[in-house]
């Protein structure tokens, strides 16, 4: 990478909150750049100090008696309630079908199913960062499930040619595309001509 990472990105790296591909790029940069290594060390020390101060000064609270008070205050509901996990809605199915239809119109090799192993494509892109650009935007609600738990991963080559688009559900909530995530949609044009239409 040519540019030095900003403080916020270093912070996200330290907190393991960067997408894997970006974290790899930054770590490689830190190996080569002593100045950024020093900045990362300083950021790590600052974060450790703040976290340690906040954690060790958190007062000890009698959680058991506090819980009993909550049960009484809630009329007993706290003792039985569980946070509801919202389910995938029919609206999401319609949205996904629409997305698949639109993608088909763009002549790509659309896929929910086979044809390509998206993880293999990602690994290949990570192995050859000079020849391709991997972007992992996570997370928003791309599948209409009413939850910001979907990622949009794109792979591009020189000349702004987008060759792979993956919509995935970030099951492990890692904030990046990893093994075990659900692939909702894949469109690949590994050997064809990428689409470049003007919207009319």
């Amino acid at each position: 990478m040519r540019e030095h990472p900003a403080e916020g990105e270093l912070q996200a790296l330290l907190d393991r909150e960067l997408p894997n591909a970006r974290a790899l790029v930054l770590r490689a940069h830190l190996l080569r750049c002593a100045a950024c290594r020093a900045r990362a060390d300083a950021a790590r020390e600052t974060a450790a100090l703040v976290d340690a101060l906040l954690r060790r000064t958190t007062p000890k609270v009698d959680s058991d008696s506090a819980w009993e008070r909550l049960v009484v205050r809630s009329g007993g509901r706290a003792a039985t309630a569980r946070p509801i996990v919202r389910r995938w809605t029919p609206v999401a199915a319609v949205a996904l079908a629409a997305a698949a239809f639109i993608a088909t119109l763009t002549r790509g090799a659309s896929w929910p199913g086979a044809r390509a192993d998206p993880l293999a494509l990602v690994r290949e892109a990570q192995a050859h960062p000079a020849s391709s650009l991997l972007r992992d935007a996570c997370c928003s609600d791309h599948d209409g499930g009413d939850r910001p738990d979907d990622g949009l991963l794109t792979l591009s080559s020189v000349g702004e040619k987008v060759t792979v688009v993956i919509v995935y559900e970030d099951v492990d909530r890692s904030g990046t595309f990893t093994h075990g995530d659900i692939v909702r949609y894949v469109s690949t044009i590994p050997h064809g001509t990428p689409v470049a239409h003007t919207v009319r």
């Binding site: 900003a6 403080e7 916020g8 990105e9 270093l10 912070q11 996200a12 907190d15 909150e17 960067l18 950021a43 600052t46 974060a47 703040v50 996570c138 997370c139 904030g175």
Partner: peptide, 15 residues
């Protein structure tokens, strides 16, 4: 989510 790193870094410095 990408804004949290910068916001957090600044908050730590201010603290």
């Amino acid at each position: 989510p990408t804004s949290i790193g910068p916001l957090l870094a600044r908050a730590q410095q201010r603290f």
